[in-house]
């Protein structure tokens, strides 16, 4: 698999491995949700996790910023390294990790606060802004990166919950990038959006790739094909196949991948 990847990477401006996972197993109580997954996620790349419902792709995504820690019965084995540093090391505070690894959720979940406060929340709690002007600048920059600045610049102090679904999701993306993360995890970010809003978010993901390593879980194979450079196919808790998106969709190696892509399982 490693050899395949080095071949695939030719032609794409990719430099380093951002996240390296080895032998990751996840248990919910007795039930094993992830069975021995090893993967290398590259910097400045969009990586898509696809697979049928319940295959563990979201669970694995949530391991990458330790969101699974909040579930009492969840247990993670194995080794996940961000820039070579073990993120499950007891010395690592998950709060610090989550500032580096931002997350966007399935359902747009702005805080019931103003648009400004939504975006400013992260920088505020992490102390990223030294002054009000500083914070204003961070908010504007983040909203611009979230491709929503033009739509909300005149109503920054209106509640974020008053926006449309697509705008809310872009606000959430802006909120996630406001803390200057290095990796952005997206858990089915478009599943609650209409096609137009989906197109806007997908366009945004493509831009975000310039600055971040983006990992996106999606149920839509078209979406994976459109936005990602790398695709990982999960099935029943296993990582079946991981490689260049073009290759996964046109010439999968594993018969299960082919079955899923052509619609026979899932």
């Amino acid at each position: 698999m490693m050899n395949d990847m080095s071949k695939i990477e030719q032609g794409i401006a990719v430099d380093a491995v951002k996240i390296q996972a080895r032998g990751v197993q996840v248990f919910y109580g007795e039930k094993q949700a992830i069975k021995d997954v090893s993967v290398e996620i590259l910097d400045k790349t969009v990586t898509a996790f696809i697979g049928p419902s319940g295959c563990g792709k979201s669970t694995f995504l949530r391991c990458l910023n330790r969101m699974n820690d909040t579930i009492d019965i969840c247990r993670v084995n194995g080794d996940i390294r961000l820039d070579g540093e073990d993120i499950y090391d007891p010395a690592i505070d998950p709060v610090q990790l989550r500032a580096k690894v931002g997350m966007v959720f399935q359902k747009p979940n702005p805080f019931p606060k103003s648009i400004y406060d939504n975006v400013a929340y992260g920088p505020r709690i992490h102390g990223l802004a030294r002054s009000k002007a500083d914070l204003d600048e961070i908010v504007e920059r983040s909203l611009r990166r979230g491709a929503i600045w033009d739509e909300v610049k005149d109503r920054l102090h209106e509640p974020g919950t008053g926006l449309s679904g697509g705008q809310q999701q872009r606000l959430c993306i802006a909120r996630a990038v406001a803390t200057e993360p290095e990796v952005l995890l997206m858990d089915e970010p478009c599943s609650a959006l209409d096609p137009i809003a989906t197109a806007q978010v997908e366009e945004l993901i493509d831009e975000l790739r310039l600055n971040y390593s983006v990992v996106i879980v999606t149920h839509s194979m078209q979406q994976a094909a459109r936005v990602s450079q790398k695709t990982a196919f999960f099935h029943l808790g296993n990582l079946v196949e991981y490689g260049d998106t073009g290759q996964i969709f046109t010439n999968p190696e594993d018969p299960r991948t082919e079955s899923y892509i052509t619609g026979r399982i899932g």
Partner: peptide
Amino acid sequence: PPSIREAALGIGASKHQVVFGH
């Protein structure tokens, strides 16, 4: 709703910031 907790945790709020802030 749990989505509010997740949102705050995802940004890197600590447990007490999530509880008392949101």
